[in-house]
Each structure stands twice: as C-alpha cells, then as structure tokens.
C-alpha cells in the first residue's frame, strides 16, 4: 500500500474530504512531506509482524489507561 501511494492523487482528494484546506502555496511542500512519510511507511509496512503483536497501549475501563 505505502509503495503504491501517490501523494499527488491522494492529497487534494483526502484533504477536501477531511475539510482540511491546503493553500496552493503550501501544496508542493505538503506533497513533498507526505512523499517522505510514504517512503518511510514503506519501510515500516514491509516489516512483517505476527498478528498477536499489538500496540502497547493498555486500556482499562475505569480510567481509560493503565
């Protein structure tokens, strides 16, 4: 998913859907920043993890945390 990610196709549509205005003067830098994140996300997503590995957050109903 991260490897096939196309910031130029994704950013205008996702930002519009989220109601996040991006000024034309910022668009190039945002595309660049998201391209970097997509590249590093490719490294993360390519790392195989067993299903039983869950994020470390511990939720308890009475406090909302550990």
């Amino acid at each position: 998913m991260a490897d096939a990610f196309d910031p130029e196709a994704y950013v205008p549509q996702a930002a519009a859907a989220l109601g996040l205005p991006i000024a034309p003067s910022d668009l190039g830098d945002v595309l660049g920043a998201l391209a970097i994140l997509a590249r590093v996300a490719g490294v993360v997503m390519a790392f195989p993890l067993p299903e039983e590995i869950i994020a470390a957050a511990v939720f308890t109903a009475e406090k909302g945390d550990a």
């Binding site: 930002a15 945002v30 996300a41 790392f47 470390a56």
Partner: peptide, 27 residues
C-alpha cells in the same frame, strides 16, 4: 513546520497502527 503538520493529518491509519505494533516488537 506547516507542511509537515498538514501531511501528518493525511497519513493513512494502517501506517500508524503498524508503526505502533512494530514498536511493541522492537522493545
């Protein structure tokens, strides 16, 4: 900082969750 903050608001959720799961493995 502006462009990096804006880009962060658009990161697909699976990237974040996988990163958090990886953190557990790594620790």
């Amino acid at each position: 900082t502006r462009a990096r903050f804006l880009a962060g608001a658009l990161v697909p959720a699976p990237w974040y969750v996988h990163a958090q799961r990886f953190r557990r493995w790594y620790c």
